[in-house]
């Protein structure tokens, strides 16, 4: 496996950056935590991760203020240039707000903060992120969010299916669809058209050790290094 230089962003209120460091170090990669005031990311970056948390206290809308942080300009340029970007939870919200991913994330339909392990079905694995997984495979990954209710209009959704941009859906242990937070068609993770920007609500970086309930996160994050 290739050793990657992973740049992990840190905003005021980010709280998953060191779990993300742990996860990528465990896979043999180099990590760099980048404070949001930085105006550039390291030139040798192979992957940018926008980790979970509550950037700017989730004020206004989750991710709406973080998208204007100085570092985001270079992340957007990096993504538009074909660079790989992964957004986890609040990172997913930031990437949709920044327009790098389609759709938006609303308050969970039952209004609860949901924090538990959840089964996920791999819908498309023909991409850098999930290439170690099989289509139809069921993974078990923690979720922890208040605003994970994915919304996208019908027309965009149909384009996303045509381009294999729907990556993960919430399901039960057998792989049957399961309503978790009200997301359109139970969507938990998506990518952009060019398949270099990925976003998901579940936390693969929290599923790296069997003793903590699951190590399925390894199968997901390993894909980037192949």
């Amino acid at each position: 496996m290739k050793s990657l230089n992973v740049s992990i962003l840190q905003f005021p209120g980010t709280n998953c950056e060191y779990d993300t460091v742990y996860a990528f170090k465990r896979l043999g990669h180099n990590t760099n935590v980048i404070w949001h005031k930085e105006e550039s990311i390291p030139a040798d970056t192979d992957l940018v991760v926008v980790p979970g948390g509550f950037s700017y206290g989730d004020y206004l809308r989750c991710g709406s203020i973080a998208k204007f942080s100085p570092v985001m300009k270079s992340v957007i340029a990096y993504a538009n240039d074909g660079g790989r970007v992964l957004g986890i939870c609040n990172g997913f919200q930031i990437l949709t707000e920044a327009g790098l991913l389609p759709g938006a994330l609303k308050r969970n339909d039952n209004l609860h903060f949901i924090s538990r392990h959840q089964h996920l079905k791999v819908v498309n694995s023909n991409n850098d992120f999930l290439k170690k997984c099989k289509e139809g495979e069921v993974l078990y990954i923690p979720i922890a969010h208040h605003d994970g209710n994915y919304f996208v209009d019908d027309e965009t959704l149909s384009d996303m299916y045509d381009n294999a941009q729907v990556l993960l859906k919430y399901c039960d242990s057998e792989g049957n669809p399961m309503v978790v937070n009200g997301s359109v068609e139970q969507i938990a993770g998506v990518c952009n058209k060019d398949k270099n920007v990925f976003g998901l609500m579940p936390h693969p970086e929290r599923a790296m050790e069997s003793i903590l309930g699951s190590k399925d996160g390894i199968r997901m994050l390993e894909g980037f290094g192949i």
Binding site: L60, S64, F68, K106
Partner: peptide, 8 residues
């Protein structure tokens, strides 16, 4: 640009 997210 900021106050509303016109997607939703």
């Amino acid at each position: 640009t900021l106050l509303a997210n016109t997607v939703i």
